[in-house]
Design a protein around this nucleic acid. Structure first.
Length: 485
RNA sequence: GACUUGGUAGCUCAGCUGGUAGAGCAUUACACUUUUAAUGUAAGGGUCCUGGGUUCGAAUCCCAGCCAGGUCACCA
C-alpha cells in the first residue's frame, strides 16, 4: 500500500482509541442541504437558525487554532465551515480531543456531519460556525485534489481510463461529469412522461433470446444448463415489441439494453440503450412529426430552451427538420448517379473503385453514404426512401415496391434514430428474411399471420442522443460504467 | 482487426541528442485566531506499464507484449 493510505489507516486506529467509530451507524439528522442554505442565507442568519447537515470534505485550511473546511453535499453545492477551539462545545475543548480529531485526523475526502450556525466572515463569505462534528465515514484512499479559482479548475482529474474505471471518483471530483448523468436521468424520465401522456405502455421483453433477431450484429452467446442449449443476449427487441402490437396494445415502448459483440468506439459500447417504440394505425410520416415533438419536449423540459449548441453549431429543434432522399444526398455529394434500380454489378464496380471491400448491395450503399454524406450532415435531417434491400423489416411504398417507408434521423453526423412503417404481410416478411439467409424467428412470422395492424416503429439511440444533447463527443461520457478490458 | 498517440509520485505534468528521478498540489512535522488555489519553513513518498535486447550505463534507443485515447474498418 502506498504512503498516504498507510497514514490514514494509522489515523483510524488512533480515532478508535479515542472511542470514536470511524464508520458509525447512526440516524443522521439533516435539516438543510447546502443549496437550501445558500438560497435562504439571509433568513437563516437573521433567525440564527441551527443547521444540521452532512457532506464530504474537499479542502482544509488550517490556521493556528482556527480551521476552515470546505464541504460539498448531494445538492452539489459547497459551503465553508469554520471552527475555533474557543467556540466549540465544552466537550471538544479538552485539548487532546480537539487536536486529535479536528486538527489531525480529518482529511480531504472524509464524510462528516456537522451542527452549527451561519455567519459572514471578514471577507464576506457565508460560513458555518461549527458547534459539533461527527465523522461519518473515513476516507482512506486519497481523492484527487482538484482546486478552483475564479471558475478555473486546477489539477483536474482527467485521465479517461481512471475516470471510467473509477466512475465513483469521477463523480465526486468532476462536477461536469455528475451533471451529465443527472441530465441523462432527466431526459429518460421526460421521454417516459411524454410517452405515458399518450397512454403508451412501457414493457419488458426478453433479454435472453433463442434467436437473436431484429437487426444484424454479432451476439453475445450464453448457455442454459437445464435446457442444455445456447441462448443469446438480445441484439434488438424489435420482434418482441411487434408481437405485442399483434397482441393489441395501443402502443408499446421499452428502454432496451441491447448487446452487440462488436468493437468499441466513440458511438459504440457493447451494451447500449435503445428506446424502441411501436404505435399501430400510424405510419412513418406520423412518426417524423412525433419524434420532433418528443425532441422539442425533452429540450424544453431539460434545458428550458429548444436551441442547443452542439459541436459549435446552434441547433434549433423547433425548426422543421429537412427530409432528404437517400439516393439524392448520395448523388449530390458523390457525383455518382445511382438509385434503387442500380444493378449489383454496377454497385460492385463502384465498391471496387472506392476500395470499399464489401460486395453486398446494402453494405455498398451504406459505405458510400458514410464516405460522402455523413460528415456533411450537421443540422437534424431525416434521410428517407431507403431501398428495400437495406430494410428487410420495413413496408414498401405503395407506388414503388423497391423503396420503403423508412427514415433515419441524423444530427451532427451521428445516426440518432431509425424508423419505418412495419412490414405486416407475413408472406412477404418470410420471403425477405429467407433472402437474408439468417435464422428466422418463426414465432414472429406466426404472430404476423395472426395479423398485425399497420404499425410504425422507431429505435432511438439513447446514449447517443444524450451525448449529443450534453455536447459530449463520446458516449462513454454518458454511460456510467463503460465497458473496459 | 489496422494505423496512430500516450502510460513517470495519490492527482496534474516536466524530464533535450542515453549518465543513478523533478515541479506544483496532496501527505507528514512545525508556525500562524477570518482563510478560500491560504501562507511560511522543513521532510517523506517512485517496479519511470511489463518482459527482453543494445550499452560500461536505459525513463530515454531497439524488439515483443499489456492497457487506454484518437482515426479507420465492422456495427447503432
Amino acid at each position: 500500500m502506498f504512503e498516504q493510505e498507510y497514514i490514514r489507516k494509522k489515523k483510524i486506529k488512533k480515532i478508535k482509541l479515542l472511542g470514536i467509530d470511524p464508520y458509525p451507524s447512526k440516524i443522521i439528522k439533516i435539516n438543510y442541504s447546502i443549496k437550501k442554505i445558500l438560497k435562504n442565507k439571509q433568513n437563516i442568519i437573521n433567525k440564527n437558525k441551527i443547521l444540521y447537515l452532512s457532506g464530504r470534505i474537499f479542502n482544509i485550511r488550517n490556521m493556528g487554532i482556527s480551521t476552515f473546511v470546505d464541504i460539498k453535499d448531494y445538492s452539489e453545492k459547497k459551503i465553508q465551515l469554520y471552527y475555533n477551539i474557543n467556540k466549540l462545545n465544552k466537550k471538544y475543548r479538552e485539548n487532546n480531543f480537539y487536536i486529535f480529531l479536528f486538527k489531525k485526523y480529518l482529511d480531504i475526502g472524509d464524510i462528516i456531519w456537522i451542527k452549527g450556525n451561519l455567519f459572514i466572515t471578514k471577507v464576506k463569505e457565508y460560513t458555518i460556525l461549527i458547534k459539533k462534528i461527527v465523522l461519518l465515514s473515513k476516507c482512506i484512499y486519497p481523492i484527487p485534489n482538484v482546486k478552483q479559482k475564479n471558475k478555473k479548475i486546477y489539477y483536474k482529474f482527467k485521465d479517461k481510463e481512471k475516470r471510467y474505471r473509477m466512475r465513483y471518483l469521477d463523480l465526486i471530483v468532476n462536477e461536469k461529469s455528475k451533471k451529465n448523468f443527472i441530465i441523462r436521468s432527466l431526459i429518460i424520465n421526460y421521454i417516459r412522461k411524454f410517452l405515458n401522456k399518450f397512454n403508451y405502455i412501457e414493457v419488458d421483453t426478453p433479454i435472453l433470446q433463442n434467436i437473436p433477431g431484429g437487426a444484424y450484429a454479432k451476439p453475445f452467446i450464453t448457455y442454459h444448463n437445464k435446457f442444455k442449449k445456447k441462448l443469446y443476449l438480445r441484439i434488438s427487441n424489435e420482434l418482441y415489441l411487434k408481437k405485442l402490437i399483434v397482441g393489441g396494445f395501443k402502443g408499446v415502448y421499452e428502454f432496451s439494453k441491447n448487446f452487440r459483440n462488436e468493437s468499441i468506439d466513440k458511438i459504440h459500447n457493447p451494451e447500449f440503450t435503445i428506446l424502441e417504440f411501436y404505435v399501430p394505425y400510424k405510419n412513418y410520416v406520423w412518426m417524423m412529426n412525433f419524434l420532433q415533438k418528443l425532441l422539442i419536449y425533452i429540450c424544453k423540459k431539460t434545458f428550458n430552451k429548444t436551441k442547443i449548441k452542439i459541436n459549435n453549431i446552434n441547433i434549433d429543434f423547433k425548426k422543421k427538420i429537412k427530409k432528404i432522399k437517400l439516393f439524392n444526398i448520395i448523388n449530390k455529394y458523390s457525383k455518382l448517379n445511382i438509385n434503387e434500380n442500380t444493378s449489383i454489378n454496377t454497385l460492385r464496380e463502384i465498391s471496387k473503385k472506392l476500395k470499399l471491400n464489401v460486395d453486398k448491395k446494402e453494405k455498398i450503399i451504406d459505405n458510400i453514404f458514410n464516405i460522402y454524406c455523413k460528415d456533411k450532415i450537421k443540422n437534424p435531417v431525416f434521410i428517407i426512401d431507403y431501398p428495400i434491400y437495406m430494410s428487410p423489416l420495413a413496408k414498401s411504398k405503395s407506388n414503388n415496391y423497391k423503396i420503403t417507408e423508412r427514415f433515419e434521423l441524423y444530427i451532427n453526423s451521428i445516426e440518432i434514430a431509425n424508423a419505418y412503417t412495419e412490414l405486416n404481410d407475413p408472406i412477404e416478411q418470410y420471403k425477405r428474411l429467407k433472402e437474408q439467409k439468417n435464422k428466422i424467428d418463426k414465432d414472429f412470422i406466426k404472430s404476423l399471420k395472426i395479423g398485425m395492424p399497420p404499425t410504425v416503429g422507431i429505435g432511438i439511440g439513447i446514449d447517443r442522443l444524450i451525448a449529443l444533447l450534453t455536447n459530449n463527443f463520446n458516449i462513454q461520457e454518458v454511460i456510467l460504467f463503460p465497458q473496459m478490458k
